[in-house]
Design a protein around this nucleic acid. Structure first.
Lengths: 412, 412
DNA sequence: CGCTATTTGTTCAGTGGTTGAATTATTTGG
DNA sequence: CCAAATAATTCAACCACTGAACAAATAGCG
């Protein structure tokens, strides 16, 4: 059942050590309390001698550190717990969205060590201007990280749109961007991050994908499968299957907004009819709640809607119930198809979760065959607003954890 | 982008060789013409010395053989091409379905070396009786394989229903089975297959899953993503993502039949309303075509429907157009969500593909955002009726190819 | 026919990394 | 203060890969 796929590449001599570095580091990262070398040996099946040698490399490379000795536990020589270093490599997470910019730094242990959000309507700005502002935030984050002894090993930028492999933003409708070569505009002058073999200096990715990754790493260890729905102007989803983000054949998975709800429903700007977005998109919900004309920034309008619903406003409640039912119909189909056990309401849906959750659950229990056996969890996202930036930064450090060889081999 | 997941297990000394055995074997399996040791060395990055040593192990273990020397090619010592052995391990594939039993043997190279189909209405029989008959087919297949010099290394049984990890058939509605302990009933007396470390002697799996695996292995090499739809009485789907079958959080993925098409459509036996199955299930299509009362076996009825449609019968054509449109609506949602590039019409849909394909394509082009960029292929299944048995047998040999160590370490 | 160029496959000393057992280090308990 | 217990390190042995030299087998050419 595990890894039925053919091995991708050959294994050369040194790969052995590289692999075991990753194994031991992964165990340290996944442990709930600092493990000793002996426990690592027992857990991995390696000998204590090997674990000692591996750990020595990791200590020298500032990837792990020895924890403070614990008070006392039993007889024998006390163990020295190992923890992920908090003064080694870190990831830089960036986000451009319609009404804010964000930058954050996440260390190896997954802790957010720096976080700045710059609120502003980005739509009037050109991509170059917006990215120049973002570069300022990034420089500030970099300086802050440096003061804390952290080295930025890579960066990930979240964009609300379709991105290709080279970091070209094909289309970000709500920003009004089209074919924007982000890496050239952002990293133009000096490189943002230190060069680390195997880590891309800047990855540009869809906001929904990175937010889903953030949710993945914020949650418990394991290999969960869930759907993370980002309800913004458009509705995007990040799909995590067996603990890995699934990007699709061309990297464009997650277009849940255009799942048909009623084949002959209202026309959608995608050309189809009755797509989910026409029922549950931000504009549709606000219009149904009577907030259409207000022309507030998206963020404010959602907050307003939540306030109205909390106060019992009938139009707001009706709008949210209708949206939740449509969302539930779509989600039920997805859960039936993929057998997911968790659905996360993120982005603009997170603050509306108290009102969206019940109708979604109703549709799931009505339509999902296996819901009776084992229930489906529907919950708001654990990470807050700028989840995508945190998720992006986290994806950088996760890659270092998965392949520490590149970091250890660096000149510095 | 490759393997961002943490390494699952530690790497001990001997794993190195084991891994390289799999790498070299995988290259031999994927090559379009028998590769030489030198070509393998160049392709894998290993030294010729290492490849020679690895190949020696594979030859000794009857996993590969040296091909007949080719006429002539150029200067230098002639190379000795390597091919997968056709007298080594093989997989046994079995299938229980509503109106037939099947058994087949597939060798390492993926060739079907034995295939028996026993047509009979299985519904009147008890599970024990049906499985006793299947055991006869299996014994015959085993004897035939033995005569050909093949050793059965494992078996896979396809069942049209929900199966749990232990091989217990929770529910197979069309067979009328519930909580049937298949392994105990089938393998009761003597083991079907030789014991091979790392290969389960008998895997019981959903028919749609194994049929999708068959389609995966019958297709070109690579890591494709596609949806394989088995249209029988119920509609199941096998989901292949990045070249691997996706089973879902609990192993129950693929319930495409209960994707909502119209939230307020006709009631479905699942308890929901307007599920795909109520539009495109075999019963629904036959009823719409006016073949409902005939009470033919499912297989015959489908053939009849294809004949009528081929002769231009208006009711049949109308029924198929309607079914295809509903199917297309569901498929469009799936393709939007998962960014698949291929949809395979299998099972009972394969013979109906000429009529189902056009409306499905219409809905996709109308509703899938990225269809304009890069088209979605909709095609009938390459494997015929008993695709699931072949797929199951193939999954056994694929596992040997992926982890040859277990086979090589066997006592015999 | 014999020689050279060329490519394949094997042999062998060398090396990196793991193994297993012995050894050292550090604490608790009597 | 010593024995028991557990943690971590040291070291010779071993396994698998590396690199280079070597043997094998063929085509081309005079």
């Amino acid at each position: 059942m595990t890894r039925p796929d053919a091995p991708p590449g050959a294994v050369r001599q040194g790969s052995l050590r590289e692999w075991n570095l990753a194994v031991v580091l992964g165990r340290i990262a996944a442990a709930d309390r600092p493990p000793s070398r002996a426990e690592l040996a027992a857990g991995t099946g390696l000998t204590r001698a090997t674990v000692s040698a591996v750990v020595e490399d990791l200590l020298a490379g500032r990837l792990v550190a020895e924890a403070e000795p614990t008070p006392r536990t039993g007889a024998g020589r006390p163990s020295r717990g190992l923890v992920l270093a908090t003064d080694g490599p870190a990831g830089l997470g960036l986000e451009v969205n319609v009404d804010y910019l964000a930058a954050c730094v996440v260390d190896l242990a997954g802790r957010v060590r720096h976080h700045t959000v710059h609120r502003a309507d980005l739509r009037p700005l050109s991509p170059a201007e917006a990215l120049a502002r973002l570069a300022d935030l990034a420089a500030h984050a970099r300086a802050d990280a440096s003061r804390a002894g952290l080295t930025l090993a890579g960066a990930a930028l979240a964009v609300p749109g379709l991105v290709d492999d080279a970091g070209l933003v094909r289309l970000a409708p709500n920003l009004g961007w089209r074919d924007v070569p982000v890496p050239a505009l952002l990293g133009g002058k000096a490189p943002l991050t230190a060069h680390v073999d195997g880590i891309a200096p800047l990855v540009v990715d869809n906001e929904a994908n990175l937010a889903a990754l953030g949710e993945l790493h914020a949650g418990p260890a394991g290999r969960p499968s869930f759907l993370h729905i980002s309800g913004e102007v458009g509705i995007g989803a990040g799909i995590v299957l067996d603990g890995a983000l699934f990007r699709g054949a061309r990297g464009w998975s997650g277009e849940i907004g255009h799942i048909p709800i009623r084949p002959d429903g209202p026309p959608c700007r995608c050309g189809g009819r009755g797509c989910l977005e026409t029922y549950t998109g931000q504009e549709a919900i606000l219009a149904a709640a009577g907030l259409a004309g207000a022309d507030l920034p998206a963020d404010t309008a959602t907050t307003r809607l939540a306030e109205l619903a909390g106060a019992g406003d009938p139009a707001a409640l009706r709008a949210l119930a209708g949206a939740g039912t449509a969302l539930g119909v779509a989600v039920a189909g997805v859960v039936n198809l993929l057998d997911l056990d968790t659905v996360v309401l993120g982005g603009g849906y997170a603050p509306l979760a108290p009102w969206l959750r019940p109708p979604v659950l109703t549709e799931i229990s009505r339509r999902v065959l296996t819901a009776a056996w084992s229930p489906v969890v529907v919950r708001p996202a654990a990470l807050g607003a700028a989840a995508a930036a945190v998720g992006g930064a986290g994806s950088v450090v996760r890659r270092i954890l998965a392949r520490p060889g590149g970091w250890l081999a660096r000149p510095g």
